[in-house]
Design a protein around this nucleic acid. Sequence first.
DNA 1: TCTGGGGTCCTAGGACCC
DNA 2: TCTGGGGTCCTAGGACCC
Length: 423
Amino acid sequence: MYALADCNNFFVSCERVFRPDLWNKPVVVLSGNDGCVVSRSNEVKALGIPMGVPLYQIRDKVEKYGITCFSSNFSLYGDMSDRVMSLLRKHTTRFEQYSIDEGYIHIDHISPERQKTYCEQIVREIYQGTGIPISMGIAPTKTLAKVASKYAKKHKGYHGACLIDTEERRRKALEMFAVGDVWGVGRQARTKLHAAGITTALQFADRREEFARNLLHKPGLLTWRELNGIDCIDLGEMAQKQSITRSRTFASAVTELAVLEQQITDFCSSCARHLRAQQSVCRQLTVYAVTSRFRTDSVSHTIWADISLPVATSNTGELIEYALRALREQFQAGAPYKRAGIILTHILPAAHALPDLFDTRDRQKDERLQLTLDRMNDRFGKYTIQYATATMPAANADASVYKREHCSPLYTTDIRQILQVCV
DNA sequence: TCTGGGGTCCTAGGACCC
DNA sequence: TCTGGGGTCCTAGGACCC
């Protein structure tokens, strides 16, 4: 049996932990540049404000209902997530973290009749230990556990934990569950299912296996099996990322090459740090910068460069070199670039990297330098030593190309804020 | 005017091999 | 003039997730 622990309105809940005055008040968390709504409190959901809506489209409601808006603060959410996950891990020998706010506990070591009360206890423990409210769904497959967690979240009577352990409960739960809300059923699949006259999860589960395979191929087939109680989705451990991305949309369009160079430099530094942290190297680097996809009245241009690296690397300086060269080659003067980013792919363990016969770099020296820089930045702060084309951290607050007007303090990761909270 | 960011997996089709 | 069949690997693009 799986028990899925799913944090309720996670980003909003993180903000509320440090702002108890906002309990029972309408609150949203916004995406980068304060663009879209990415997390909503129950009060906001009740107002009919959908997920992902741009802030400017709901300005009147924000005003009218006094909705509190937060810019996203990922240092805070990441830290709160770590706290929740470490408490969850204590309850099982097999824990699979699925996202920043969800994880699956294997609970076969708990006798069937105690599983629900056991999970109710976990819900209370997490709340007491972190201030984050969670819901739990218990079932023989991950997809059914997801369904159960939605019921637990929706109805107070479950005390935070809903159990699907019998055929009767499975059928009843699926009968009242919209097929489009099933984990793994997206927009396309939903449209196809509706066209076939299927609107509930039970109607889908009750069709023949061949139907699911023919209509939705392998992913749909797996979902069908899971809904019928056959455990077949393996999340795997995935300790090593297969691709690493950094990208940002700018508050207003960028036309200066130098500004793009700074951004790309920052992205390279951040990705390369991540790469080294998981002890891997990459063989491909993609650099891009694009103009707004919503504007039709200005110059449209796409910079896109896939660069095959001669030797797999995690060296920040080397990545910056290749990235900036491609950027400069394709940069078009006058184009208003609204978003830029880099993607590292073809990632492999550093120990598996092959040397190149015609290599011109002193790799051992590079590595020693990189290690030294990492140590200095770990010890004295993230921006102690940077590459010269990077943005100046001091300038970040004022002259930033990003907008973050409603950011909460770094309550849990900045020593000055931690002291404030303690006081 | 203002519209996020970071991932994974699957599939079809092309290149290439014998 | 006649021009197969079976396989692997790679990649781009799509669908989906939070």
